[in-house]
Design a protein around this nucleic acid. Structure first.
Lengths: 390, 390
DNA sequence: GTAAAATGTTCCCGGAGAGAACATATCGCG
DNA sequence: CGCGATATGTTCTCTCCGGGAACATTTTAC
């Protein structure tokens, strides 16, 4: 954001109250710049020092110093370019070290899954265990510990930046407590604490839809789009998340984005949340299955989805609406109908539609999203997070 | 926010892409600290240097230098304390200079209003002109120029930080263009540019609901609450705005927060937006007037409001829902009914309710909110904004 | 009136980035 | 094959900023 942007955009950032804004010291500047560099190679892939100089606006000598520090911290390597193609001394290529990883856990009703994800977003190792009954928190922690040992043996000498779990349920803002995960039967579990103890690395917990959107923003269909509404349809209902101005919607307690419980039909069925006519009582995996090849039934469900999207567009004015799970399938089956339904119903003063797209990442989405979450502290303060050898 | 907070809260701030995050220089540190200080006295009223030292965590000598610079810039004055009440050398009191003002314009269907607002949020002068027909943009600009001259004569020698207009309609993210203000009949007007030319100070435009919430956050019922949903009922419909994690919801184009067009009744009437069953077709000033003393009718409207609030709570998980205009009146008339209706319908895993409150600021709300908007660039960069003598 | 306490003021220090000067590596051309 | 042009890495110096110590100032308590 340019300086002009900040001033023009005075409305975007509410003025900070003093208690929330500590004074800046010199080392915070350093931290910020280290973070900027590491974040750049994290998302942008390998970049030359010259590119970093141009994109950050920092001085060549400064980039040199910062890059050397990241290298000394064991976070990046600086290679000579293979071939240049232009005149002048070739610039060194800065790339994240592939042996720096994050652990990502996904406990679900039918399986437990742990993945090791490298800084470039690739899943380098994974373990999966199918289960007959929803796993307890203890089951999940035990699986994570065992799978982490196996993965450690497989990878040999990786360094772990942190761990995170993607949980299908409500997670408190502290990033530790699973307040309620109805399908797993978890309630008020300090899961992050348990995981930290079992894995020996700093572990946090996130809501699955939130982390899914985060993954899509980092490496999927929503890459770089800063205003995104995400709807994911799974067997357990409809999960939602929103990225607004580049920040994840969280709410005061961490429960923001529960779009599965938006009102869609005022005469609808009773929902488990106590209301009637919630989106997920009308549009869910069962109903879509039941529709089979019944065109009219599928049309009706598509219309419900269009109404929901229109509703969300009125509230959030996103650049992109991203659909995952069975909602992605429904969208693919009725693209035109849904697009025109939204166009007719959305509150939009101009012809510009928000794009609607299907989520791009496949089965790795939650692992990648959780890993992004686990990498976040390292990216925010590269010199302040200690990597754990596994 | 503490450093620990930042790292725990990795999910809150999506990692910034490199292009959006310029490298930090030393003078940016200085700018940030000047901003922190000026912002502190802006919202916190007069503060002693000792308080600033404690609250910012900066060194005593640093605060001295920063405060001296703000004083030299003509933005604050440092007074000796009248009486102390405790041992030790009395600390100097830093207060914003009362002659630094912002101009706030509010063009509405029935009147034009211009106010001069001091840094502490008090409206120090105002001019109002009732009109029979909705004013054109040119009318509004002409009124603003004339009223500003009168106010200048009245105040004598104030220095203006900027101007802003609160417009009942959709405003583009650029903070300049009124995309559509149906009740005024404005469409695609570069109003900020016109106002800048007419007033001779940097002028921007904001949506009225957004600026109303901003005012409530700064000086009203939502003071310091960082997750707020705001609903304002006026003759022209229901305006909405949301403050999420301390930042105003804007959306990709600037049209976020149009809660008046959320679906509330799937069999409802046709709305001007093209959809059916929008909140403001069911709940509006006319219907509330028509209800008169009909208890059942008022109850029904209260139930609609409760459903809308529950819906918004599911989506945003706010700490506070703030109601203005006729929605505030309706809330006062049916507090218990609405509170319990929300409690029954909101998607909440625990007993904790979001607070619901009536907006606190009166007729000055929009002037104060627009002034906050106009002050924002000065608060963000105290040394970089030139004040204009009027 | 004196000691204690809190704050303002002055001066020096170390860290951070900018920028200039120099060193190095590649390309293009004769 | 060598030279100049070009781009980048490296080193050194400079400025600016905040931290902190020492000292000065002002009030309260006894």
């Amino acid at each position: 954001m340019t300086d002009e942007g900040v001033t023009v955009d005075g409305d975007a950032l509410s003025p900070t109250r003093v208690a929330a804004s500590r004074g800046s010291r010199n080392d915070q500047t350093r931290r910020h710049n280290l973070s900027t560099l590491l974040t750049a190679v994290h998302y942008g892939g390998p970049l030359t020092r010259a590119q970093l100089t141009r994109e950050t606006g920092l001085n060549r000598s400064t980039i040199g110093g910062l890059s050397a520090e990241l290298s000394a911290l064991g976070l990046v390597v600086e290679d000579a370019a293979a071939e240049t193609g232009s005149v002048g001394r070739p610039s060194l290529i800065v790339r994240p070290r592939p042996d720096v990883i994050a652990l990502a856990l996904h406990p679900d009703v039918d399986a437990l899954e742990l993945g090791a994800v490298a800084v470039d977003g690739t899943v380098v190792a994974r373990r999966r265990l199918g289960v007959d009954a929803p796993p307890s928190p203890d089951d999940a922690v035990a699986f994570a510990a065992a799978a982490a040992r196996e993965i450690a043996a497989e990878l040999g000498g990786a360094r772990v930046a942190g761990a995170a779990a993607a949980v299908p349920g409500l997670v408190a803002v502290d990033g530790d407590t699973v307040v309620a995960a109805p399908h797993l039967g978890w309630r008020g579990v300090a899961f992050g604490t348990s995981l930290t103890a079992a894995l020996g690395v700093r572990s946090t917990v996130g809501n699955d839809a939130n982390l899914g959107l985060r993954a899509e923003w980092s490496y999927g269909s929503a890459r770089g789009v800063d205003n995104v509404v995400y709807l994911n349809g799974s067997a357990s209902g409809i999960g939602g998340a929103a990225l607004l101005g580049g920040r994840m919607l969280r709410g005061g307690r961490g429960y923001g984005g529960e779009f599965g419980h938006m009102l869609i039909r005022s005469d609808g069925e009773r929902c488990s949340c106590g209301r009637s006519g919630c989106l997920e009582t009308v549009l869910n995996a069962e109903r879509l299955d039941a529709a089979g090849h019944d065109h009219a039934a599928i049309d009706a469900l598509a219309d419900v989805l269009a109404a929901a999207i229109a509703n969300l567009e009125s509230a959030f004015d996103p650049d992109l609406v991203l659909l995952g799970g069975f909602l992605g399938q429904l969208f693919d089956a009725r693209r035109e109908r849904i697009a025109s339904g939204v166009r007719d119903q959305a509150f939009r003063p101009d012809a510009e539609d928000a794009a609607i797209a299907r989520a791009g990442l496949g089965g790795n989405r939650l692992l990648i999203g959780a890993a992004e979450r686990a990498f976040a502290p390292l990216l925010a303060d590269p010199a302040g997070v200690e990597l754990v050898r596994m």
